[in-house]
């Protein structure tokens, strides 16, 4: 119990520590996200802290710049199968998905996106779904990412533990310790240099539970996700990702690369959740009718 309390305190001590460095003087109220911050130039650029991603981040292009509704940021869906290196199985999986976004979108009532059931999106789709305000906290053992959408969080271990090995139906943590697939998989991270953090994730959910993006592109439990967080300076960071999923794609490909901007650590982030009750009400009042149901 003591160690859990210690970890909790450590996680929240970091943002408190950032208060003294905040560029935004205390307004004494409930701060809302500010997307009209002045651009970073040579005149106001500050050096990035060493080996730290901690902070409250938002898309540098604005509140909706990383929603990726049209498909993952690096390759929005243009509707052509040849755009991605699908395996035959992957292409069949894509065609079985009835997405509400993208080139092959269907009407709201006709979709089969697991998101519409408020299912967890899993990794990597949380990186591709309405990335808005993203909080990152870290201590000497881990980095925690608090996603805005559905108030979800994940942990990336930085204590030197080994990435598990993929086995049939799950992962082997070592010595035959078999564990189940998870929506957020099993993630370990390492500092490539003082400003570049690389994360590898495996052991995610199978393709009948999760999608890659909102346009219905598939992803399987065989995927290996590699993310890189590169701190450009104090206020900006580039988040990129490559997936290697031999079940769905014949070769690895980059799914996203976009810039994040640091926000005041006291920013109050609004809830953004998926509620089955509210989803049902929306479908009844609007979604079904516009679909002719």
């Amino acid at each position: 119990m003591v160690s859990r309390i210690g970890l909790f305190v450590a996680l929240f001590a970091i943002p408190v520590g950032l208060l003294a460095q905040s560029p935004n003087p205390a307004p004494g109220g409930w701060l809302i996200p500010q997307f009209n911050q002045p651009p970073i130039t040579d005149a106001n650029r500050k050096p990035a802290p060493r080996r730290s991603l901690a902070g409250t981040w938002g898309p540098a292009g604005g509140n909706s710049a990383a929603t990726q509704g049209g498909g993952v940021a690096a390759r929005p869906n243009n509707g052509r199968a040849e755009q991605l290196p699908y395996t035959p199985y992957g292409l069949d999986a894509y065609r079985s998905h009835k997405a509400l976004e993208g080139a092959d979108a269907v009407l709201p009532a006709d979709g089969n996106d697991p998101r519409n059931l408020c299912e967890p999106l899993g990794v990597p789709r949380y990186n591709h779904y309405n990335v808005r305000m993203t909080q990152i906290m870290q201590d000497e053992y881990k980095v925690a990412i608090l996603y805005h959408y559905d108030n979800r969080w994940r942990v990336i271990w930085t204590d030197g533990r080994q990435l598990p090995t993929l086995v049939e139906g799950g992962v082997d943590l070592g010595g035959g310790d078999i564990r189940e697939p998870r929506f957020f998989g099993y993630s370990v991270g390492r500092w490539v240099d003082d400003y570049t953090f690389e994360v590898t994730t495996i052991g995610t959910m199978p393709e009948d539970r999760v999608w890659l993006d909102s346009t219905g592109r598939p992803i399987s439990d065989q995927v290996r996700v590699t993310e890189t967080f590169r701190r450009m300076d104090y206020d900006t960071m580039v988040w990129s990702e490559t997936i290697d999923d031999p079940k769905m794609y014949t070769k690895p490909w980059e799914t996203m690369r976009f810039q994040l901007r640091l926000h005041d650590p006291r920013t109050d982030i609004q809830e953004y959740y998926c509620s089955p009750v509210e989803q049902e009400r929306y479908n009844r009042l609007f979604g079904n009718t516009v679909s002719g149901k």
């Binding site: 929603t67 509704g69 049209g70 509400l100 976004e101 993208g102 979108a105 709201p108 979709g111 516009v290």
Partner: peptide, 11 residues
């Protein structure tokens, strides 16, 4: 414009 957060413009 970017597509909407919840559904596209199909409807």
């Amino acid at each position: 414009l970017p597509l909407s957060a919840h559904h596209g413009g199909t409807a």
